[in-house]
Design a protein around this nucleic acid. Structure first.
Length: 558
RNA sequence: GCUCCCGUAGUUCAACGGAUAGAAUAGCGGCCUUCUAAGCUGCGGAUCGAGGUUCGAUUCCUCGCGGGAGCGCCA
């Protein structure tokens, strides 16, 4: 990439000017008027040697100006000591050509040969697939795709709690319903009833704990039957949502599997890493780090907790797929458990702990009042998507466009994912349906719309017989942004941050829309028309690739 | 009380120790006989407070204040 070349040139010029080697950066200035790239090397050197950075910059820039390279048009020095590089028309033409020739422009091979497993979504059978799972899914799917675009093989994994107290609560609710003659009760509702009873009623609490044990040892025929039905039903339902979200998992892991295995591992390490206390088996996090807590790994009933299961899971994953990196995406409410877990894991399976990367996300909140839906109950992913879809349909009617169900859903999913991915993961997302589909500004539909517009203009070019050509007589501002895409892909992947892609796409789209407003692209009498068509094509390609990396649908027209 | 995360325009978000802190929304204008006006374009408004490190701090450190999550048998 260009910036690598600029780094090398700067380094060499610095040496030739008689300065020592230091750490420095070559980055895009915040404002493109200042240059396409800027280096802070003179600031670093000036500080180190007590010299005026402007003088240092001038000296280095003087040497750089001697370099014959047709990528560069000019080099400037600016206060307080930046060296600014301006790229040439030749460079922009060449990169435009590159983009048109490479349908996967932006992809790199930094992680070539690496195996990465990404775990996300993790809904629990018997419980609702709620909007929190949407967050995990959107982020996880995008991170998986980013990793693939960095050359690695990414396997998607979904880990599901098919045993545990929450299941017992749901099964308890189902048993009660059956006893009172209610049929076909939804599992989500059974769970809600069970959870309520568990909190409020001591008898129910004991019954649920009893059921929990029975689920683990599968000792009760009646319970087994209910359990099997519920599990199957939930899992099939989840698949219908994955389809809408364009996710396909390679592996499914279950707590019924990681539980016993995790328990075994903990017991094997009892006495050393884990110790017995009050009938449970615990890990004393404080022993290793003051900010950690003691965590229970096996409870006093002999059942493995989240932590033990997770420990077992790391190993199970590795046996199934010997990974170089394991990315685990969860809500940030488990952050501290995960920290403790990683310390415990570093003692039991040091090589796995080292390969594990935990990414957490905040909650998806709805602005109060608007759609906070029946008193505090969780909102299901399905109902949110449906609501969005209806809002999109209304919007289509308003603007008198044709729409079908599929298109409305693509726009709805795009709006939703955009809202989730637009900010750095970790913080809560405030999701406003109206804003997300308003399209007055940055939104999923804005990107989709821009892409659809490009599709349309390119069709017009084709019908007029205008062929894209990267050779043009002039330069357009938009060209100073399109070549950057690979850098963004690289950064987003190494930092596990899809929002870099999203922010970049908005910038490209907005610049393109300005370009589109100022220029007629398809014009037989304009000698620049092929060049403009090439720009539209390149931007279209970047939007297409970028939307793919975000797993946002890209409708052909809208 | 302890631990972790967070505090940026009215609101929702950006800013990899650097240049004039960017967008979008919301408000008021302008632009469709011409490729999709769900677009473009013009005009205000912000770094929670106090110190410190640095040539340079929204960013790093300390202390306040405010918000969120968690604090031994749920996940």
């Amino acid at each position: 990439m260009v910036y690598e070349k600029l780094r090398d040139l700067t380094e060499e010029a610095t040496r030739k000017s008689g300065f020592e080697a230091v750490n420095f950066t070559v980055e895009h200035p915040a404002n493109l008027e200042l240059g396409d790239y800027a280096s802070n090397i003179a600031l670093v050197l000036g500080k180190k040697n007590g010299q005026n950075p402007m003088d240092v910059a001038e000296k280095i820039a003087e040497v750089l100006r001697q370099v014959e390279d047709n990528s560069l048009s000019r080099i400037e020095v600016a206060s307080p000591g930046f060296i600014n590089f301006f790229l040439s028309k030749e460079f922009f033409s060449k990169s435009l050509k590159n983009i048109l020739e490479d349908k996967q422009f932006g992809k790199n091979e930094n992680l070539k040969g690496k195996k990465v497993i990404v775990e996300y979504t993790d809904p629990n059978p018997f419980k609702e697939f709620h909007i929190g799972h949407l967050m995990s899914n959107s982020i996880g799917e995008s991170i998986s795709r980013l990793i693939e675009w960095n050359g690695a093989e990414a396997k998607r994994a979904c880990y599901q709690g098919d045993v545990g107290l929450h299941v017992a609560k749901a099964v308890w609710g189902a048993v009660k319903n059956k006893e009172s003659g209610i049929k076909n009760q939804e599992w989500g509702k059974c769970y809600t009833e069970g959870a309520k009873a568990y909190k409020e009623n001591d008898t129910a609490k004991k019954e649920i704990e009893e059921i929990n044990k029975k689920i683990y040892d599968r000792s009760d025929e009646e319970i087994n039957k209910l359990y099997n039905e519920g599990r199957k039903e939930s899992l099939e339902y989840f698949e219908t949502i994955y389809k809408k979200l364009d996710t396909k998992f390679d592996f499914y892991f279950f707590e019924s599997e990681s539980g016993p295995f995790g328990k075994k591992i903990v017991l094997e390490n009892k006495g050393g890493i884990f110790e017995e206390s009050e009938g449970a088996i615990i890990f004393r996090g404080e022993k290793y780090d003051n900010s950690l807590h003691t965590r229970v790994f096996i409870n006093s009933d002999g059942l493995p907790t989240y932590e033990a299961k997770e420990l077992g899971l790391a190993k199970i994953k590795y046996e199934k797929y010997p990974y170089d990196m394991s990315v685990v995406i969860t809500g940030n409410e488990v952050n501290e458990y995960f920290r403790v877990l990683l310390v415990a894991m570093s003692l039991v399976f040091p090589e796995l702990a080292e390969k594990t990367k935990h990414i957490s996300h905040g909650m998806l909140r709805l602005p109060s009042g608007k759609m906070s839906s029946r008193t505090g109950e969780v909102i299901s992913a399905e109902s949110l998507i449906l609501e969005l879809k209806n809002a999109v349909k209304d919007k289509f009617k308003e603007t008198r466009r044709d729409s079908d169900d599929k298109l409305a859903e693509e726009v709805a999913v795009g709006a939703l994912k955009y809202s989730i991915l637009k900010q750095a993961a970790g913080k809560d997302v405030v999701f406003d349906i109206g804003k997300s589909i308003s399209l007055d500004g940055d939104s999923g539909p804005y990107l989709q719309y821009t892409k659809a517009r490009i599709n349309s203009v390119l069709e017009k070019c084709r019908s007029l017989g205008i062929e894209s050509s990267a050779n043009g007589g002039q330069n357009f501002e938009i060209e100073r942004v399109v070549y950057i895409f690979p850098e963004v892909v690289e950064r987003a992947s190494t930092e596990f941050s899809p929002h870099y892609i999203l922010n970049y796409l908005v910038e490209v789209a907005s610049r393109f829309n300005a370009f589109y407003a100022q220029n007629t692209i398809a014009d037989k009498n304009d000698p620049e028309s092929p060049h403009k068509a090439a720009i539209a094509q390149a931007v279209g390609q970047i939007l297409e690739s970028g939307l793919h990396l975000l797993a946002i649908p890209s409708p052909h027209n809208m």
